[in-house]
Computed example of a mutant assay.
Amino acid sequence: MFREESRSVPVEEGEVYDVTIQDLARQGDGIARIEGFVIFVPGTKVGDEVRIKVERVLPKFAFGSVVE
């Protein structure tokens, strides 16, 4: 049932997702998770429920921005 982590990136660049910010990164960016996959979202704080657009996907994490 478990896929190999290196292959299971559950988000796509340019796609929009509804997420809840769960943690803060050291740099102060909010951290959301989709299927355990980390997405850094600048300008958010823990508890925010936001719609994000994924801007850049890397093997272990992604970067997103809040969309209205």
Rank of each mutant, 00 (worst) to 15 (best):
61 F>I: 00
1 M>W: 13
58 L>W: 07
8 S>F: 14
34 I>P: 04
1 M>K: 13
25 A>W: 07
5 E>L: 12
2 F>E: 14
60 K>C: 03
1 M>N: 13
12 E>K: 10
49 E>P: 03
25 A>C: 07
34 I>Y: 07
3 R>G: 12
16 V>S: 12
5 E>W: 08
4 E>R: 14
6 S>N: 10
15 E>T: 01
54 V>Y: 01
40 F>C: 03
42 P>L: 11
5 E>D: 09
24 L>W: 01
26 R>V: 00
59 P>K: 06
61 F>S: 04
60 K>M: 11
33 R>N: 11
49 E>R: 15
57 V>M: 01
3 R>T: 11
28 G>M: 14
68 E>I: 01
60 K>R: 14
27 Q>N: 15
50 V>G: 07
30 G>V: 07
30 G>E: 06
18 D>T: 10
39 I>D: 00
21 I>N: 02
43 G>Y: 09
67 V>D: 11
43 G>S: 08
68 E>D: 06
6 S>T: 04
48 D>P: 10
41 V>M: 04
37 F>L: 12
23 D>E: 14
34 I>F: 09
33 R>T: 09
54 V>L: 00
57 V>H: 04
12 E>P: 00
11 V>S: 04
49 E>T: 10
52 I>G: 00
39 I>P: 00
65 S>Q: 09
45 K>Q: 15
29 D>T: 10
12 E>W: 01
6 S>F: 09
42 P>E: 14
61 F>A: 05
68 E>S: 06
16 V>P: 05
36 G>R: 09
65 S>F: 02
33 R>K: 15
27 Q>T: 15
51 R>K: 15
18 D>N: 10
67 V>N: 12
25 A>M: 10
58 L>E: 15
24 L>N: 09
58 L>M: 14
52 I>V: 14
35 E>K: 07
25 A>V: 09
64 G>C: 00
24 L>S: 10
41 V>R: 02
21 I>T: 05
34 I>G: 05
6 S>Y: 10
8 S>N: 14
2 F>T: 10
12 E>Y: 02
48 D>V: 13
50 V>N: 08
45 K>Y: 11
24 L>D: 04
25 A>K: 09
27 Q>F: 11
7 R>I: 07
24 L>G: 03
15 E>N: 08
2 F>P: 06
16 V>W: 05
67 V>T: 15
24 L>E: 07
16 V>E: 13
42 P>T: 15
10 P>V: 02
59 P>V: 07
35 E>N: 08
59 P>Y: 08
50 V>L: 08
4 E>F: 14
8 S>V: 10
17 Y>P: 05
31 I>T: 13
6 S>H: 10
22 Q>T: 06
31 I>P: 05
50 V>A: 06
48 D>A: 13
3 R>Y: 13
13 E>L: 03
7 R>A: 08
26 R>L: 05
